[in-house]
Design a binder for these strands. Structure first.
Length: 545
DNA sequence: AGTTTCATATGG
DNA sequence: CTCGCCATATGAAACT
């Protein structure tokens, strides 16, 4: 059962059209109520222009849906597959193409949700004009036709389903929010930085600035200005190319120690300090906006709040509600396992059956040297060309030629200007993307792709497939958790955090393991490669693993 | 003054 | 050529 939906901008009503039975669209005054009713009765797949636009209002009305088809995300996947990356994207562009009209430029996305969240009208976040429902139906039919014509239609359908499920999850995670104790955050900051000052940096930073100045025998030096620090070292007779941490660590000078402390703490103060907390934490929840497919590899991005980069020390503020707990699961060694699965290298796949792939690889081929085995595999996936990894890479090439050739072929395709795809069919952007993205007329041929392009395509086939595995995994998990109180509250590439009543933790742990196994089978079928998870049940995110 | 790039940190 | 991939975020510095 497929039902197309549009929401009235600024109102609570909308239009529904049955795609399976046909029939004319029906206008309803209370869209959320009708969606809830049909969801309970027949569990349809909802077809809409953009989950990010439509679903938040449904959630606020207390309505969850199980499945959808996100036309906008699907359109992006399809036009990427066609190699039409530079053209205007989005549903309006698809409609215009269908009608044979000139294609409008992308309509602006709604502003990143400012941290205050006042909501009045039910669908007031729908800031773009709602598309005509007949157009949506036409775009959907056209997408189905395009997918049917693909050589790997089955896989691509799985990708579309997973991407759409991811869109639902992203909105649900934003709705739930990550439990965040502002009081503990403040405690952590005071421990590290000292009390906040009405104006200027906190006490500890001021002390370190004084110590650095004293070590140089100067006054008024700003430690956060790399240029000033480089000059100060030069006056002290030390030539440094930059103030990167690893450079400073090699310098013997009394200013180095306070400088390194300063840099670390300054970072926390500016990026995750009191101002951040005021801006992003409300009512005990951190609510970033998650953007599925926000990265070309299919990994998610966030808009605002830096939710994917929360420093480890700050995670002590992420504490489960009383009587609740976190289940934190992390897919270990995901990318090398993906390489084993997609390449079909039997020998690597046997190593990937082990809980510690690198250790198994070391036993098999690297005389037990785990570090060397790991270096070789990472070097192959990232396109390392020099350094101490070279001998290890030679061993890898000799013992696992199928896996080695897989990434080599992807690199060569990129270097020759070609496109590569993930396992399910997500396509990398063309090399000339930047050139055609802006207004620059493409008056000359694209620059020769070069080696960095090769490294990009080499890594893309792995990273994008790893992102697919993770997406299928969380989609499967979401289904398993349906009807329980457990909620996904964070998803960071290969790691998830579920917030659940303490009594349900065991069931959630089982569901998480099961979802990982299912994801492996759904993507790769019968393979010896396993995708084990490190799972912890903790009261605070910082205590995981 | 406003915008873009650089440098440096964080995360995977 | 701190490696070799993908990001976001901040302030300083450079640029228009």
């Amino acid at each position: 059962m497929l039902v197309a939906v549009t929401a009235d901008p600024g109102g609570a009503g909308g239009l529904l059209a049955d795609l399976t039975d046909g029939g004319p669209p029906r206008r309803v005054p209370d869209l959320a109520a009708v969606v809830a009713e049909r969801e309970a009765a027949e569990h349809p797949r909802w077809v809409w222009a953009s989950t990010a636009d439509v679903y938040p209002a449904l959630l606020r009305a207390g309505v969850r849906v199980a499945r959808c088809h996100d036309l906008e995300l699907t359109e992006a996947l399809l036009s990427g597959h066609d190699g039409r990356w530079g053209e205007p994207r989005g549903v309006p562009a698809a409609i215009a193409r269908l009608r044979g009209l000139s294609v409008p430029a992308d309509l602006p996305r709604p502003e990143p949700s400012p941290p205050g969240f006042a909501q009045e009208a039910l669908f007031d976040t729908v800031s773009r004009p709602a598309a005509d429902i007949a157009d949506l139906i036409a775009v959907h039919a056209e997408q189905q036709r395009r997918i049917r014509d693909l050589a790997e239609a089955g896989r691509f359908r799985m990708l579309v389903a997973a991407e759409s499920a991811g869109a639902l999850i992203a909105v649900e995670m934003g709705h739930a929010g990550l439990p965040w104790r502002a009081d503990l955050h403040d405690e952590i900051l005071r421990e590290l930085l000292g009390p906040p000052q009405p104006v200027g940096p906190p006490r500890r930073l001021a002390e370190l600035t004084a110590a650095i100045n004293e070590a140089f025998g100067v006054h008024g030096l700003h430690p956060d200005s790399p240029a000033e620090v480089v000059r100060a070292f030069a006056r002290a007779g030390v030539q440094i190319p930059s103030t990167r941490r690893w450079i400073l660590q090699q310098v013997d000078h009394p200013a180095v120690a306070p400088l390194l402390d300063y840099k670390e703490l300054y970072r926390i103060w500016t990026a995750h300090g009191w101002a951040w907390c005021d801006a992003w934490v409300r009512d005990g929840r951190f609510r970033p906006e998650f953007v599925p497919g926000g990265v070309v590899s299919g990994r998610w991005a966030t808009r605002g709040g830096g939710a994917l980069q929360v420093p480890k020390v700050i995670r002590r503020a992420v504490v489960a509600d009383p009587g609740w707990t976190f289940v934190v699961a992390d897919a270990g060694q995901l990318e090398p396992r993906v390489l084993a699965a997609v390449s079909g290298d039997g020998r690597l796949a046997r190593a990937a059956a082990a809980g510690d792939l690198y250790a198994a690889l070391a036993t098999d081929s690297f005389a037990g040297d785990r570090a060397k085995a790991k270096l070789a595999l990472l070097g192959a996936m990232y396109g390392q060309t020099g350094g101490d990894a070279l001998p290890a890479l030679a061993v890898l090439r000799r013992h696992y030629p199928t896996a080695f050739d897989y990434v080599e072929a992807a690199a060569r395709t990129g270097e020759n200007g070609g496109l590569v795809r993930s396992w399910l069919g997500r396509t990398c952007p063309p090399a000339s993307r930047e050139a055609f993205d802006g207004l620059d007329p493409p008056d000359e041929v694209a620059p020769p792709p070069g080696r960095s392009r090769g490294r990009f395509t080499r890594n893309f086939v792995i990273q994008a497939t790893a992102a697919e595995w993770a997406l299928v995994m969380i989609a499967t998990l979401r289904t398993a958790l349906e009807g329980t109180a457990a909620e996904l509250v964070l998803f960071v590439h290969d790691e998830i955090v579920v917030h659940c009543p303490a009594g349900q933790a065991d069931a959630v742990v089982a569901a998480v393991h099961d979802s990982a196994a299912r994801a492996g089978r759904l993507l790769f079928g019968d393979t010896t490669v396993r995708f084990p998870l490190d799972v912890s049940v903790v009261g605070a995110y910082a205590d995981a693993k």
